[in-house]
Amino acid sequence: MWFFDKYNDKKDGVIRGYDIRATKVKILALIIMLVCLLMVCVSLFPALWVFLASFKDIKEFTRNVTIFPEKYDWSRMLGTWNAFKFTKYYKNSLIAILGCSACAIIFNGLLAYGFAILKPKGHKIALGLVMWSLMIPGITSIVALFRNINLIGLNQSFIPIWFSFGANAFWVVLFKQYFEGIPKELLEAAKLDGCGVLQIFIKIMLPLSKPILVVVAIFSITAAWSDFLLPYLVLNGTDKTTVMVKLFSFKDTPTDAVSVLRAAFFAIIPPTVIFAIFQRQITDGAASGAVKG
């Protein structure tokens, strides 16, 4: 049977190609398949549901015991989009994301380069501090952080949002582990050729680190899109409001449930599109990036 034939070429996992001849293993393989399909449903259903529910009007949503809407009226969606001026929030989110992602790659990358390759005297102390901040969630000191941002007059600006992504211990660790795997000979050779510290980073390290760059870029893009607490405190009420800031502010504004759901739906679209396009790179990257952790 074609279903089981393919198991003969199976390269990884507990069930080996030779196992599949046994009926018991065949049944097991089928059960696993079914369980996996169920997991897919569980994973995807909430997003699908918010899409369907967004078509309902408020009366239908609060009263009807249904999953599917009565009709698929795009003008309702468009109405909410325009009423809340989502075009503007999308633009602002884009500005935030680009800056955040650039900062995440540049600053965390450079620091990891220092920890993994340069290892100047005393770097262990700095590394220790960075590792400890991995353990202590930033949210505990958000009040004090906000006070600092005010102190240097950077409130209501994208700058603190961008730079906040340049100090992420987790990504430093990802970079560091990857950099440590780069063959030392290449770096030695570059050094003998007279390359400076920064030149080595740009000419040797970065081209060799494409997979991890993709991982951090994608991680930081989705994280920046989803980030809301600091942006909310810094940007709320300005013309720089991002999609997530708007979504978070609904908790205090009497807004009907369907509008909130539609806003949530709008907030899900961009990451879903990115994911649909780059799914291969994202899933491969997410696995390979942290594989040595």
């Binding site: 006070r147 005010n150 409130n155 405190l233 810094v234 709320n236 009420g237 205090d252 504004t253």
Partner: peptide
Amino acid sequence: PDYYKYSTDTFMPMVESGN
């Protein structure tokens, strides 16, 4: 015009920043 919807979690940051 400077629309501000009062909420407890934004108020103090806003006052602090002089806005």
